[in-house]
Amino acid sequence: MTNPGPPRTVAVLGTGTIALGWTALFAAAGFDVRIASTRADAEEHVERSLPQYARSLPGGAVPPEKLGARLSFHRTVEEAASDAEVVQENVLEDLSLKQDVFRRAGEASPGALLLSSTSTLLPADLGARLDRPGRVIVGHPFNPAHLVPLVEVVAAEDADPADVRAAVDFYARLGKTPVVLRRAVPGFVANRLQSALLRESIHLVREGVVTVGELDDIVTASIGSRWAVVGPFQAFHLGGGAGGLRHLMAHLGDGLERGWAGLGNPPVDAALKEKLLTQADEAFGAHSYPRLAARRDRAQNAVIAAVREAGSADDAP
């Protein structure tokens, strides 16, 4: 990234769920946001969607019209990227498509920081059509992108360390928690953890141990609230009492592999899909998506704020 000083203009490529979250957050942070989308009704779509994001921003609700005043819409990737210092890509998870988008964005703005919201593709592959492939850096958010603090920053081996630092600084400026992965692995970290838990959740529902709704209640009433405060390793460290993780591993470590061997590996066949969908309809179908999303966003903001406040209290003299 060759532009001096903090960025002022961001190009958002795409208008899907993740792109909308980024758009609202960028605009709320004071950036001018240049949007490129293949949708014929892109401007109307963003205008309809923006209120949902505007009222649940981490710093408090912002009038949608105030956010909208910072947005501009462009017909092509080149137009959106040409005056941008940062490009956040959010197009379909199609490698060839993303490679072409980054080639075009990179040529249109040689000094821009090129970031991808991909959840599955590796940065070296994304930048393959650029003169410097390592220029593309993954900035993978966790949904909803405007609320959840984590951004996984993933760079290719030949990435310029200055670009990685610029990506970290950019996300930190937004109030995010950027974590640089030490090496690129498929699925990154957060989604791999989520996938492991989801697999066992589906196994337990398939075996009739719990329903979809009951499984969610168990998670939110136990490990979900715990993990909002401490991660898995610190939780087990505390579980070992004064002796910490060393004490726990000495007593329970040998049984870990036996426990893992008993976990499920359910086949995702038609019968399982129908069971999951039927139970999901029973558990969540009474409420519309906007209502469920609004409830989630309010609660998510409350949890994040409470944890932050508790941490500040610990640091107080």
Rank of each mutant, 00 (worst) to 15 (best):
R192V: 03
L115T: 06
L114G: 00
V164L: 14
G134Q: 10
H146Y: 02
A155E: 06
L150S: 03
A145M: 07
V148N: 02
V136D: 05
P141Y: 03
A162L: 11
D163Q: 12
D169C: 10
L215T: 05
V151R: 07
I223W: 12
A112V: 07
D131E: 14
V180M: 09
A145E: 08
T120C: 08
V212E: 11
F170D: 04
H146R: 04
L122H: 02
S116V: 10
A112P: 08
R135T: 10
D125Q: 15
D169F: 02
R132N: 15
R135E: 13
V164G: 11
L181D: 00
S195I: 12
A190E: 05
V154R: 08
A128G: 01
A145H: 02
A112D: 07
V154M: 09
P186Y: 05
G175Y: 01
Y171K: 00
E152C: 11
H146M: 01
R129Q: 14
A172L: 13
P186N: 06
P161E: 14
R182E: 15
P110W: 06
D125E: 14
P144I: 06
G134A: 03
L198T: 09
R199Y: 05
G175F: 03
S195Q: 14
G111A: 15
A155W: 00
V179L: 12
S225A: 15
V164W: 11
R206F: 01
P110M: 12
R173M: 15
E207G: 05
S195N: 12
A156S: 12
S195T: 15
R165F: 02
E207A: 13
T220I: 13
G213S: 08
D125T: 07
R206H: 13
S222K: 04
N191E: 00
V185W: 10
A145L: 07
V189M: 03
G224Y: 04
V164M: 12
L174T: 07
T120V: 13
G134W: 09
G224S: 01
L198P: 00
A128M: 04
N191G: 01
F170M: 14
I218Q: 08
F170L: 12
Q194A: 08
G139A: 12
L113K: 09
I137G: 00
A159Q: 10
P144N: 02
R183W: 07
